[in-house]
Design a protein around this nucleic acid. Structure first.
Length: 214
DNA sequence: GCGACAG
DNA sequence: ATCTTGTCGC
């Protein structure tokens, strides 16, 4: 497996196999589950990742972890995990009893195995995918502030219009969570028209990349 | 063959 | 994502 095409072909097989391991229902094992967000920013070939834990009651960041690693793998639609999973797995390994919002899709994916589901299955932790544009599937009729996204008659996610925003975010199950809960968490953690854990992780990662480039 | 295509 | 100025909208 040397060239990119071979790697992608094998990746598709891996994704299909892992997809069967995704749990699409809410878990009940954890008591006080924390909520976190992860994002990655790039400066040339360096991936700067940041994960934050956001406390909804006090609307504050209670923890922030960072890591920088070399990343040579290119972004290929449908295989985003090959580029970002390595650095994210290293970062989330430091946390316990935490549900993570991840910048990308979960089962809203051609093979039902986007980055969020990959991270969830690999670490066996609850994850939710949040994307800013639609990768796959079709929007059904909008009902209130949401519209389900389907593919082959299967609901794989939902477009969600947050207060004050013209464009929706695309929410999907990552792992160990139901779509209803995923949508609820995305809404209740939003502050500036976007899930705050992700917005904060994004700001932090960008700052890391900016400073790192100087 | 032509377009679509998370970040 | 990243490269970059002005500009549209609330």
């Amino acid at each position: 497996m040397r060239n990119l095409n071979d790697v992608l072909a094998e990746s598709e097989t891996t994704q299909t196999e892992l997809a069967s391991q995704v749990s699409k229902s809410d878990q009940h094992e954890f008591e006080g589950l924390s909520l976190g967000g992860v994002d990655v920013a790039y400066c040339n070939e360096m991936a700067h990742a940041c994960a934050v834990i956001f406390d909804i009651p006090t609307q504050s960041i209670v923890r922030r972890e960072k890591v920088i690693v070399d990343c040579e793998f290119p972004y290929v639609p449908g295989h985003f995990y090959l580029r970002e999973a390595p650095v994210i797995l290293r970062l989330l390994d430091r946390f316990e009893k935490t549900m993570f919002l991840i910048d990308g899709n979960g089962v809203l994916h051609p093979r039902r195995m986007g980055l969020a589901s990959y991270i969830g299955v690999k670490l066996d932790v609850p994850t939710i995918g949040i994307a800013k544009s639609l990768l796959h599937g079709k929007l059904s009729k909008r009902e209130g502030n949401r519209a389900f996204i389907t593919d082959n008659g299967e609901t794989i996610g939902s477009a969600v219009w947050l207060p004050g925003k013209k464009k929706p975010i695309f929410v999907s199950i990552g792992h160990r969570v139901s779509l209803d809960t995923a949508i609820r968490v995305a809404k209740m953690s939003s502050v500036h028209g976007y899930p705050e854990p992700l917005r904060q992780a994004h700001l932090c990662a960008n700052e890391m990349a900016r400073v790192g480039s100087q």
